[in-house]
Design a protein around this nucleic acid. Structure first.
Lengths: 252, 252
DNA sequence: AATAATTCATGATAATTGTCAGCTTTTCGA
DNA sequence: TCGAAAAGCTGACAATTATCATGAATTATT
């Protein structure tokens, strides 16, 4: 048993990295993000197989991992950075369905359903992802019920979130949806030391998350700023008064 | 082998019923709708267990199968009729997320995720459903990977549909969404001999499917009627010119 | 069959959101 | 670091959609 294993549970990620050489780090068995996704239900042997067949890729901000309609021969596991999953609508606008970050697995749905993917994935920040060929996934799925159940749980969760998005889209105003987006970004990605949201999205991306025109999003952002709910600096946005945002979301 | 089995593949449902006595009919093993859902991946023994523990219920139009927030101790398999699955939004309006009909299984998501259900289910027409206690489902899930994969496939499909709904909600006009609803109802539930949609929804339900105010839905229905795209008779609606509807959906 | 209760329908009006146009600021590559 | 390109911003206006009010038609109930 090597040194890093011993410290596994009591050290932070950066510290663990310190004890692992690059080859050790890149093994799925040692991958930290695995704790957050369904791969944790895999056995040692299964993980070893996955690790041997996987490929780690660096993706630069703005680059696509895959495009709507692509045939995916595997899934992507996010080690670092954030990707937007979006779908082009017939009017030419992109709707962002979901943001995927550390630990999340993208492309499961289409691999499982054996269909072309219905979404595009584009990096919103520099990313590091592992591509895992579908064979090892599909094989484990049919041999290890625990893994299948774990994947099911994740998909069930995604489905519930999708239901919530549907309700928000149809029943809330653009203003409410934008307020909600800021609260979400704050709670899920945190703030930097100056109080700005760590995950910076362009105004267009924000508009595409809440399903509105870019100009409308900009206008509402200006309004929030005027009212002291948020602050901005370039494209960076910081939440100043979460309660006001929350009130607006609830309905006044 | 009894008579109805022999005819299984070549007879329509009503004809099979003719050869089965009531006890035989009510067995899951013989249930026709099973062909359409994930239960078909169950083994004979597993199905027998399910059948012994299930309860068949008749639900009248307007009655609820379960309400948002309920803890579900099992799933509902629809044998007959249609149910709306909806979610209450904070502004007091109901958003219909999905219509479930013959063969569909409701409540899987919350049973699998072991969470309170996020949706209400109310019968839109008289229904006959089987309630299957979760034990037999969960047990089979952990023992029979084929079943788990089958459930996964269904959930993957639901998730894709949910993505499509999100895009439609945010990127299409109310008019387009209503047109889409009529085409959907026609293709999925068919028409009666006079050309009216077999599944009749109230104007309010239609509004709740497309996420708009009831008055707006009514107004648009009147407009469609004036333009010869549909006909109405009381609350019944019939598609007269599907192409016109389709053009509108596409964007002219 | 008469009456009450829903549901459907339409007008008037207000609020929300989208579109187009022009201008300013920021970002990024040569 | 300069200059082009992209992104952000704002105004004016149009289109869409919601809300309130009121009455007609349909459905349910006694």
């Amino acid at each position: 048993m090597s040194a890093f294993r011993y410290f596994y549970t009591i050290l932070k990620v950066e510290q663990i990295d310190y004890f692992m050489d690059e080859a050790e780090q890149s093994r799925c068995e040692n991958c930290i993000v695995r704790q957050f996704n369904s791969l944790r239900a895999m056995s040692k042997t299964e993980l070893k197989k996955v690790s041997d067949s996987k490929v780690t890729k660096k993706i630069k901000k703005g680059e696509a991992l895959f495009e709507e309609g692509d045939k995916l021969d595997g899934v992507f596991c996010v080690r670092e950075g954030v990707s937007k999953l979006s779908k082009l609508s017939s009017n030419g606008k992109d709707q962002i369905i979901k943001l995927a970050s550390k630990g999340e697995v993208m492309g499961q749905r289409s691999v499982i359903a054996e269909e072309y993917t219905n979404l595009s994935a584009v990096a919103v920040s520099d990313m590091e992802v592992c591509f895992i060929p579908k064979d090892s996934i599909v094989h484990t799925l049919s041999k290890n019920p625990d893994f299948a159940i774990e994947v099911l749980r994740h998909m069930a969760h995604d489905l519930k979130e999708a239901d919530d998005v549907i309700v928000n889209m149809s029943q809330k105003t653009v203003k409410q949806r934008i307020a909600e987006a800021f609260v979400y970004l704050k709670n899920n990605y945190g703030e930097d030391d100056q109080g700005f949201l760590k995950l910076t999205l362009s105004r267009e991306d924000i508009a595409n998350v809440v399903g509105t025109a870019t100009e409308s999003a900009i206008r509402i952002i200006s309004e929030f700023k005027k009212k002291g709910m948020i602050k901005t600096s370039g494209k960076k946005i910081g939440v100043l008064n979460e309660k006001l945002l929350q009130d607006l979301i609830e309905g006044f």
